[in-house]
């Protein structure tokens, strides 16, 4: 059954003369866990940033649910989306950033309650309760009153994940969530993401260089190259028998960097 919650229809993204996404067609099913891999500059993060409405598109249409994201319907015609439409659409998505981007002047708890109170109109007590549940899930209940700089990178990123979840998104976007971490802290963050991957309803889109992890949690792996999907398939297919030469070369380079 095909029930795409995300659909890229010939999406073009350019930065100046540089084409980042080249008429990209891409779908993610409801509840699916998809990992995007590929060389840097292949447009992986751009896909997430477009979905989070941090980057505009230059062509094509992106759908989230059954609605266009960067457009809206007006008299049977697609016109550029208003800020109001974007605000409405954005609530379905949550994003975890490479650099965490926690609010440094707010406590961990406040980081988690600010948006639910301000945006969703949740009561303070309810937001706080939900925040504590999320902190429990990421194993940080005792850090609620601290400020981000008092935490380790791994703890900060776990707060980042909890903060995104506090908005109850249907789709979680992870933009290289462990790339800025010291190696010994990567595991604790991946464990949290792994827990999330067990949630049946949550759609997850992950950009990462952690290949073993991607293999464990993903339903599907997409190999991006030059703004397009060069090859995609189940983790087994991609990691054990990649068909494309580019995929083989990339995987060889990242999995056996010493050769």
């Amino acid at each position: 059954m095909s029930d795409p919650i995300i659909k890229f229809d010939k999406v073009v993204k350019r930065f100046g003369d540089h084409v980042v996404l080249d008429e990209l067609d891409f779908e993610v099913q409801r509840g699916e866990k998809v990992t995007i891999i590929g060389p840097s500059g292949s447009g992986k993060s751009t896909v997430l940033r477009i979905l989070m409405t941090l980057e505009k598109i230059n062509g094509g249409v992106v759908y989230v649910g059954d609605q266009p994201l960067w457009h809206q319907w007006r008299r049977e015609e697609l016109v550029p989306a208003s800020e109001q439409h974007l605000r409405q659409m954005r609530n379905q998505l949550g994003m975890v950033f490479q650099q965490f981007n926690l609010f440094p002047h707010m406590t961990v708890l406040r980081n988690l309650t600010e948006a639910p109170i301000q945006v969703l109109g949740v009561s303070k007590a309810e937001a706080r309760q939900r925040a504590m549940e999320l902190l429990e899930m990421v194993g940080l209940t005792d850090q609620a009153a601290k400020y981000p700089h008092q935490l380790s990178g791994g703890q900060q990123q776990r707060v980042g994940i909890a903060r995104a979840l506090a908005m109850r998104p249907k789709i979680m976007l992870f933009d290289e969530p462990t790339s800025a971490l010291d190696p010994e802290l990567v595991g604790e963050v991946l464990n949290v993401i792994r827990t999330l991957a067990d949630e049946h309803d949550l759609t997850m889109l992950l950009v990462t260089h952690e290949m073993h992890f991607a293999r464990q949690v993903s339903d599907r792996i997409c190999f991006f190259d030059k703004g397009r999907i060069k090859e995609q398939g189940t983790p087994e297919e991609i990691f054990t028998a990649p068909k494309e030469e580019r995929t083989q070369a990339f995987l060889k380079a990242v999995l056996d960097p010493d050769d």
Binding site: R90, M95, E114
Partner: peptide
């Protein structure tokens, strides 16, 4: 970007 992702006005 984080504020935008969280949909803060």
């Amino acid at each position: 970007e984080a504020a935008r992702a969280l949909n803060l006005a």
